[in-house]
């Protein structure tokens, strides 16, 4: 493992970005690694963009330098573009293909880019790109709200991910409500298989 592994997660309020990040952080702690994480709380959360950052290894600040993320997990396509400043040529990028169009677009005060051009832009820039239909996979697993665990499964299966799958699963069990754990584990495994097929 590199000295410090840096993960940037971005999504929209309600997608479970913070939960997914916390699960990774606790799993890293279980492995005996140092880990720092930055979260967004409060006003910024209501329907807005939610960003968390994790540094696993010998780091003090939880914020990632521009262009320095080892891994970007974008829970929403346009949000992947928003996070591009943290992405460099060696970064690995996972992006969920289902868009969440905010009401500002319906009110014509902002614009949502064509999905095809979003993916094209990402393909042109990012060498290591995985576009995942997390919504479809989550539905297959039994619940549309497990999208975050699908993406987490994908992340754990990427090369250089610093924490073992077993520890992530253990951390999931300690952080998710017992009644939804079965569906979430299924979603996680399906995500994991997307990469390892």
């Amino acid at each position: 493992m590199k000295n410090i592994y840096k993960i940037h997660l971005i999504g929209v309020g309600g997608q479970g970005t913070v939960k997914a990040s916390t699960i990774v952080g606790e799993a890293a702690m279980k492995k005996g690694l140092n880990v720092v994480m930055s979260e967004v709380h409060g006003m910024a959360q209501r329907g807005g963009t939610v960003v968390t950052e994790l540094k696993i290894g010998n780091a003090h600040s939880p914020l990632i330098e521009e262009g320095a993320a080892d891994l970007l997990i974008a829970f929403e396509p346009a949000e992947a573009l928003r996070a591009l400043n943290k992405v460099g040529k060696d970064s690995f990028v996972i992006v969920n293909s289902s868009p969440i169009v905010p009401f500002t677009v319906s009110l014509s005060i902002s614009e949502y880019p064509e999905l095809s051009s979003v993916f094209e832009e990402l393909k042109n820039k990012v060498k290591n790109l995985l576009i995942i239909d997390a919504q479809k996979i989550a539905k297959e697993a039994g619940s549309i709200i497990s999208e975050n665990m699908v993406l987490l499964g994908v992340a754990v299966a990427t090369p250089n991910f610093p924490v073992d799958k077993k520890l992530v699963i253990q951390s999931m069990k300690e952080n998710l409500p017992p009644k939804s754990i079965e569906t979430n584990l299924k979603a996680f495994e399906k995500g994991f298989e997307e990469v390892n097929m």
Binding site: R46, L84, N85, P102, F103, P113, K125
Partner: peptide, 19 residues
């Protein structure tokens, strides 16, 4: 100094809203 990316595509605004 690291190379970083950006985009020229329009990005949707997500201001905080009443739930």
């Amino acid at each position: 100094r690291r190379e970083k990316f950006g985009t020229k595509l329009p990005l949707p605004l997500r201001p905080p809203v009443l739930c």
